[in-house]
Nucleic acid binder design. Structure first.
Length: 174
DNA sequence: AATATGATGTAA
DNA sequence: TACATCATATTT
């Protein structure tokens, strides 16, 4: 998904695009995955159709955005950790430079107004508010770096974080 | 530059 | 009790 573009369409028809510059992956059998133990109300979307949004709240004040990645019945998702936005989203009051506005999973949800109301939403254009992902150009080139995931206490050693090398919108390097 | 802490809701 | 975070404060 690195290099692809996540698009947020608002009810008034305006769009904000963000190139995906940092991701993490979570799957069945992975102790850091919310679906590690069993299906619950919170993680149910991860057991459903791929290409839907899995949005959860974390630490009481942030949300994180994932894309369901496996066939129905097999939990797994990709956490979008950072986006390089093409413009300042409507209503944004964060004074940081554009390339830092979505540099982190909690930040990108906050600045794009993504909360649990979008849990389970399909990734496809539709009337009103919607979300989709656009492929990268055919000639697109980018070098990525693979590391361990951030903020975990379980599955710490699994190297399932990727980010675009030298991109300013990455939340942190290393 | 690295480390600590508080804000805060909800799932396990 | 722990947590897929972030901003701010404090210590190296």
């Amino acid at each position: 998904m690195l290099g692809m573009t996540f698009v947020r369409a608002y009810g008034d028809g305006s769009l904000v695009r963000g190139m995906i510059v940092e991701t993490e992956a979570y799957e069945d059998g992975d102790p850091a995955c919310h679906a590690y133990r069993r299906r619950t109300q919170r993680n149910a979307v991860m057991f459903g159709d791929p290409g839907r949004l899995y949005v959860y709240q974390i630490y009481g004040m942030y949300h994180c955005l994932n894309v369901v990645a496996h066939p129905p019945g097999i939990p797994g998702a990709v956490l979008i950790r950072a986006l390089a936005l093409d413009r300042v989203p409507p209503g944004c009051r964060d004074p940081k430079p554009l390339h830092r506005l979505a540099a982190g999973p909690g930040l990108l949800c906050r600045v794009l107004g993504i909360g649990r109301q979008y849990n389970g939403w399909p990734l496809e254009p539709q009337r009103g508010e919607s979300f989709w992902i656009e492929d990268k150009p055919k000639d697109w080139q980018g070098e990525w770096v693979q590391t361990t995931r951030i903020g975990l206490t379980q599955g710490v050693e699994i190297p399932w974080r990727w980010y675009l090398r030298d991109h300013g919108a990455v939340s942190r390097r290393g």
